[in-house]
């Protein structure tokens, strides 16, 4: 298997200054703080600087993708993890935020209706890792939001070559469930997400 980097030098953006929530001094014990876009964004992009370093490592690899995502991932995840160890370079712990894959503006939340929609932008339009990123985002939200929420994950319009297919795949309950049944795949997602819970 030959590997080279599709996007060896991704543009790295500066991390936006985090809006600090001002905690009111006379906070009302019973006031309700609704879940908002910033909170979701924090769920996705907070934690240490290392979050998603794994995904980004996947991101910048090229693979000839012919099979379904499901099959493809189960085949390659073992080989990937070896590569990951080599690539893991503490000098470049880019997070999704620094690559502008996810921005706060791209998150729509409706706490009343229990609905959230995350729109993300892969760094290059033939990026083969879009589904993996999407899956990770979905799993992270499923674990961090109340169960009443419906989560919608989408690619930004025009950001990916096979946008429609990926969108369909990411929002198909059955296929997500199937993907998470796969032990290798689940391990990989867990690995990706582990640092974000720190």
């Amino acid at each position: 298997m030959v590997s080279g980097l599709i996007n060896a030098n991704p543009t790295v953006y500066e991390r936006k200054e985090r809006r600090v929530r001002s905690a009111p001094a006379d906070a009302d014990e019973y006031a309700v703080e609704h879940i908002d876009a910033q909170e979701i964004f924090d769920i996705l992009c907070c934690g240490s600087r290392i979050p998603y370093v794994f995904i980004i490592c996947f991101l910048s690899m090229t693979w000839v993708l012919k099979t379904t995502v499901h099959a493809f991932l189960s085949v390659i995840s073992i080989t990937i993890s070896n590569h990951v160890r080599d690539i893991k370079d503490p000098e470049h712990p880019y997070s999704l935020e620094e690559l502008k894959v996810v921005t706060e503006d791209a998150i729509d939340v409706d706490d009343e209706q229990s609905h959230v929609r995350v729109t993300f932008t892969p760094t290059v339009e033939h990026c083969s890792m879009a589904t993996v990123i999407g899956l990770c985002i979905r799993v992270k939200l499923m674990r961090s939001l109340p169960s009443r929420y419906k989560v919608d994950i989408r690619l930004a319009p025009g950001s990916h070559a096979t946008e429609a297919a990926v969108n369909k795949q990411l929002n198909d309950k059955e296929r997500i469930a199937a993907a998470l049944e796969n032990p290798n795949l689940l391990d990989m997602v867990d690995d990706c997400l582990a640092p974000t819970f720190a």
Partner: peptide, 23 residues
């Protein structure tokens, strides 16, 4: 799972961490 829907944000954040730790 119940605490994830708490009315206070800081409780929710702790709940995420706790849920992950126990899971």
């Amino acid at each position: 799972t119940k605490a994830l829907d708490d009315r206070k944000r800081s409780v929710r954040q702790e709940a995420i961490r706790c849920r992950q730790a126990w899971a």
